[in-house]
Amino acid sequence: MNFIVWLIIFCEVAFWVVILLGLVTRYIFKLKKLGLFFLALTPVIDLILLITTAIDLMNGATAETPHAIAAVYIAVSLVFGKSMITWADDRFRYYVMKQGAKPYKPTGLDYAKNYAKNWLKHLLSYLLGTGVLHLIVYLINDASRTAALDSVIHIWTIVIVIDLIICISYFVWPPKKESKS
């Protein structure tokens, strides 16, 4: 595997490690400022990935799927990062610390509305990520070096359309509450 693949893996692992460190520091060790510091490191991880990927491509590397996935990762992390941290925070507080209310799990029309809200976030991350990929294609200006980026844009376009169809289906057939047998 090349350097960029390892960097993406490192950044994904580091993202969840700093979130876990932030939650453990905040709730178990009662060090709220240090916990916030760890949680605030998540955008720094994204910045490291962005800069390293850009340098690699500007130094003449042929864009490969991992370069494109780096753009996808960064866009998704920027758009969903806060909600992912909140999701982890709520569950850590409830399941590990045994504090607070059980995290809300919507059903029916509420589920459909929540899914639609997340689809809009997906759309925003798609626009940011594909915008970055299109910018890289434009800056490199060599189709033979950027074919992998176009391929990921194509696949992500299919995924966003499928996700929209799923979103619409939840308004037509909203998920029902789980029955307690």
Rank of each mutant, 00 (worst) to 15 (best):
Tyr27Asp: 11
Ile28Glu: 14
Lys30Leu: 14
Lys32Thr: 14
Lys33Ile: 02
Leu39Lys: 12
Leu41Val: 14
Thr42His: 10
Pro43Tyr: 09
Val44Phe: 13
Ile45Lys: 07
Asp46Ile: 00
Ile48Cys: 13
Leu49Thr: 13
Thr53Glu: 11
Ala54His: 07
Ala54Glu: 04
Ala54Ile: 13
Ile55Gln: 12
Ile55Asp: 10
Asp56Ser: 09
Asp56Arg: 05
Gly60Tyr: 01
Ala61Ser: 12
Thr62Gly: 11
Ala63Asp: 09
Ala63Gln: 06
Glu64Met: 13
Pro66Tyr: 07
Ala68Gln: 13
Ala70Cys: 03
Ala71Glu: 12
Ala71Trp: 12
Tyr73Ile: 03
Ile74Asn: 10
Ser77Cys: 08
Ser77Phe: 07
Leu78Met: 13
Gly81Trp: 02
Ser83Gln: 05
Ile85Ser: 10
Thr86Asn: 05
Arg91Ile: 10
Phe92Trp: 00
Phe92Pro: 00
Arg93Gln: 10
Tyr95Thr: 03
Lys98Glu: 08
Gly100Ser: 04
Ala101Trp: 00
Pro103Ala: 00
Pro103Trp: 00
Lys105Val: 11
Thr107Val: 13
Thr107Gly: 01
Thr107Arg: 08
Gly108Arg: 05
Gly108Ala: 06
Leu109Asp: 09
Asp110Asn: 12
Ala112Met: 05
Lys113Gly: 02
Asn114Cys: 12
Asn118Gly: 10
Lys121Ile: 00
His122Gln: 00
Ser125Asp: 09
Thr130Leu: 01
Gly131Asn: 08
Leu135Ala: 15
Ile140Pro: 12
Asp142Cys: 02
Ser144Lys: 08
Ser144Ala: 11
Ser144Gly: 01
Ala147Thr: 12
Leu149Asp: 03
Ile153Glu: 02
Val159Ser: 05
Ile160Gln: 01
Val161Arg: 00
Val161Pro: 05
Ile162Glu: 05
Leu164Pro: 04
Leu164Gly: 03
Leu164Lys: 02
Leu164Tyr: 03
Cys167Ile: 06
Ile168Val: 15
